[in-house]
Simulated assay, not measured.
Amino acid sequence: MTSRTLKALLVGAVAALGLTAGATLAADAKTKVAFVYVGPIGDHGWSYRHNEGRLAIEKAFPGKVETTYVESVPEGADAERVIQQLAAKGNNLIFTTSFGYMEPTLKVAARNPKVFFEHATGFKRSANTATYAAKFHEGRTVIGLIAGKMTKSGVVGYIASVPIPEVVSGINAFTLALKSVRPDAQVKVIYVNSWYDPGKEAAAAKALLDQGADILTQHTDSPAPIQVAEERGVYAFGQASDMTKFGPKAHLTAIVDNWDNYYVARTKAVMDKTWKSGDVWEGFETGMVALAPYNPVLPKDVVELAETARKDIIAGKRHPFTGPILDKDGKERVAAGKTATDPEILSMDWYVQGVSGDLPKK
């Protein structure tokens, strides 16, 4: 696997001579940057945070860039049409921000070799298509520890979007951390088969609470589960952004996605004619993954446990997937003293022990 550090990306951008591929920019022309979002920018989650990154570009380069976006674009044929339209409109750099946009992005990139493309959470690249993602599983480890300390029933509900490796690895990291402090705990998962559907997310949250869960976490984009938790008097963790305002009593913390620095750096690379295709996968260390402020209700020792884990992950002293790790069937997936490799994490299609139910087929 190629180097996935933002620092290396920036160094390479500065050192490179000329464009690898892409549009030639006139000296006085504005750099045009476009975004494609799977949900609305008002989702207060995934698309909201990507849009904050778009705004960071405008702030970093006043008068030198022109940004646009298209929101709530379904994955599939519609995505290809929208991406092609953005390329045809003269955008120099196009960010496509959902896993299901991978193939459409590559198809449009092949037809538009003078345009740069960046695909979030994908694994396929080309001369003018780069990929980037965040190590969300690092955040899942920390909130799993918190959940293990705060649950009374020992049952935690997990509202999931779709069963792809990014989501599965998060469920596994959360469960491993949870059980490290509460060995008898279990995680019940409900997939809503959508990244953003407040109605389905709320219904899943209620169902999980009715099944005995007293803490909710999510890998979906709306604050609906937080609102349900607030109404039902239980705790919950937000997703992608700080969702405290939707449940001040319920919201313990959130895994925050921070794309700002990456988007600014990649835009600058286009402007400097140093853009190169590559792959970035970062977490706590570079700030691409962060945690929202801890709810004051958390005991001091719980906060200390969480912060120690976060700092140890940054320092390389702790890895979310350190063996021995067994899957639900008892098969050893990571040997004692070993850690899962990046490719293994990025292709997870199995549950660890402690997750209730079977992993659905895509």
Results as ranks from 00 to 15, higher is better:
Ala290Lys: 13
Pro293Leu: 09
Phe321Lys: 14
Tyr263Met: 08
Lys249Glu: 01
Thr308Tyr: 03
Gly283Pro: 07
Ala205Phe: 01
Thr253Leu: 14
Tyr294His: 02
Arg310Gly: 10
Trp259Lys: 11
Leu208Asp: 02
Asp272Gly: 09
Lys311Cys: 11
Val280Ile: 14
Thr286Asn: 06
Glu285Arg: 14
Pro225Glu: 09
Arg310Glu: 08
Asp312Gln: 12
Val264Tyr: 03
Glu231Phe: 00
Val234Ile: 07
Thr274Val: 06
Val302Thr: 06
Lys276Gly: 08
Val297Ile: 06
Ala207Met: 00
Asp260Tyr: 12
His251Gly: 05
Lys249Val: 01
Val234Glu: 01
Ala207Gly: 00
Gly233Arg: 02
Glu285Thr: 15
Trp275Met: 09
Thr244Asp: 00
His219Tyr: 10
Phe321Gly: 14
Tyr235Cys: 12
Ser277Gly: 11
Asp260Ala: 14
His219Glu: 03
Gly233Glu: 08
Val234Asp: 05
Pro225Cys: 10
Lys317His: 08
Val256Trp: 05
Val228Ser: 02
Val256Leu: 11
Pro296Val: 08
Ile215Ala: 04
Ala254Ser: 14
Tyr262Ser: 12
Pro324Lys: 14
Ser222Leu: 03
Leu291Tyr: 07
Ala205Ile: 03
Asn261Ile: 14
Ala236Gln: 03
Trp259Asn: 10
Thr286Cys: 04
Met288Ala: 15
Thr244Pro: 00
Asp214Ser: 07
Pro320Met: 06
Tyr235Ile: 09
Ala290Asn: 13
Tyr263Ile: 02
Ala292Met: 10
Thr267His: 05
Asp221Pro: 03
Arg232Ile: 05
Ala236Ile: 03
Asp214Lys: 05
Ile215Trp: 10
Gly287Thr: 13
Thr286Gln: 04
Ala240Phe: 15
Ala224His: 03
Asp214Trp: 09
Ser222Cys: 10
Asp242Gly: 10
Ala292Glu: 05
Ala213Met: 00
Asp312Ser: 13
Asp279Ile: 09
Gln211His: 01
Pro299Gly: 12
Glu285Lys: 15
Leu305Pro: 02
Leu216Met: 07
Trp275Glu: 05
Gln227Trp: 00
Met271Gly: 03
Gly278Val: 15
Leu252His: 05
Pro324Asn: 11
Arg318Gly: 00
Val270Asp: 11
Leu208Tyr: 01
Ala250Ser: 04
Ala315Phe: 14
Ser277Cys: 06
Met243Cys: 09
Ala236Met: 04
Gln211Val: 01
Tyr262Arg: 15
Pro293Gly: 15
Val256Gly: 12
Gly283Ser: 02
Tyr294Asn: 02
Ala240Gly: 11
Gln239Asp: 09
Lys206Cys: 00
Gly316Ala: 03
Pro299His: 08
Asn258Asp: 15
Pro248Glu: 08
Lys249Phe: 00
His251Asn: 06
Asn258Lys: 13
Leu305Ala: 02
Pro320Phe: 07
Val297His: 07
Asp210Thr: 02
Ala269Cys: 05
Gly212Glu: 01
Ala306Lys: 12
Thr322Leu: 15
Glu304Trp: 01
Tyr294Phe: 04
Arg266Cys: 15
Trp259His: 10
Phe246Arg: 02
Val256Ala: 11
Arg318Cys: 01
Phe237Ala: 08
Pro299Leu: 11
Val303Met: 04
Thr253Val: 14
